[in-house]
Design a protein around this nucleic acid. Structure first.
Lengths: 192, 192
DNA sequence: TCTCTAATTGACTGATTAGTCAGTTTACTG
DNA sequence: CAGTAAACTGACTAATCAGTCAATTAGAGA
């Protein structure tokens, strides 16, 4: 039964994710979500007391996945620049490979749903990025701006590149965007 | 009567803008909008055949305002860097001074409402930015990346800074964010 | 003042919404 | 097998939705 539980719950979350990115939060009804998941309406409310709970759970789930993908194989990188480069490509790969999740995060973050509390709560998962940036500043590899600004500029730049890739038809532009995007943000942040 | 028309129409648009940023598109009903505007429901549908028409009109209106603010006093600037610097501060000033409009644009652009067509349609207003960037590339002031990438990185960086300012309590951080943000994006884009 | 036209109104409609709950099925235990 | 607890169902509800339209109001010209 444990397996069943997970099956239905994930089915609901997957359907919700798909429909939310297609039609928006309020544009998607709980009835549509349960139908798409092949589940009764009541089951949805068994797992998520309200629709807003579902949206929030989805956001934490997706942000967790993103944060995990982001940190992959960083230790294997020797220089600070290589580490940042790896995070850069991890972020972009995640966005391109998980288009729905990527769009969902964008939608959620620009929506009135997100509170300052939620944003700060999620930020906790990015402590290691914060530490890395502070280390880079201390060792003089990157310029001494506030870590908040540095991280935000870096993260949003990666989102910009993903959006360009998703809009672009040609797949050869893809790598150019990734390379050139990093050139821009790295030169902007690096000390020399 | 001409005056009346404009009064009611703008009242509707202003109320819609306010409520959309507070509660999202689907989260705001046409009844709420008309009530807030001090107008009957029927009047709203007199000016905007459907709710989607209202949202779209609002987007074009707001983007027009933004594009106008962005280009202010550029001719007065002599160097290319000064021009970009002016656009940078214009963009940020607009976002900070027109918070609702700023958030609305963000919400709309990340929503499923926006089509590739709408995005391209709005892009036409930014031809002068495109020209400026191409000129910068040709004269060797900025690095030779695709104008699309350059503009997107620059524009999104300015949005990032506005978001940081809106989240920040201290007003002395504000100028620091604007200054440092430009340092980052300029060094990233400039040739030397 | 009267007339005509266009703007405005808000009660109304059929459809849809988030969420409920009494009853049914399922799977495990003893 | 019987007993039980939890998962699951879907018809149901009160509220709300986008959009309509017949009736009313207001202003401009004669």
């Amino acid at each position: 039964m444990k397996e069943q539980i997970k099956d239905k719950k994930t089915a609901i979350m997957e359907s919700a994710l798909k429909l939310f990115t297609e039609r928006g939060f309020h544009g998607t009804s709980t009835a549509q979500i349960s139908k798409e998941a092949g589940v009764a309406t009541g089951t949805l409310f068994n797992y998520f007391p309200t629709k807003e709970d579902l949206i929030n759970s989805l956001y934490f789930e997706v942000k967790g996945q993103l944060s995990q993908s982001m940190g992959k194989e960083i230790e294997a990188q020797s220089t600070f620049q290589d580490k940042l480069r790896k995070i850069w490509s991890n972020l972009i790969k995640w966005g391109v490979d998980n288009q729905e999740e990527f769009l969902f995060v964008g939608q959620f973050c620009s929506s009135p749903y997100i509170t300052k509390f939620t944003r700060e709560e999620v930020m906790k998962e990015y402590v290691f990025l914060h530490d890395l940036v502070n280390e880079g500043i201390k060792t003089g590899v990157i310029r001494d701006f506030s870590a908040e600004l540095t991280i935000a500029m870096f993260y949003q730049a990666s989102r910009t590149v993903v959006n360009l890739i998703l809009d672009s038809d040609s797949s050869q532009d893809k790598n150019k965007f990734i390379e050139d995007g990093f050139k821009i943000i790295w030169k902007g942040l690096a000390k020399k």
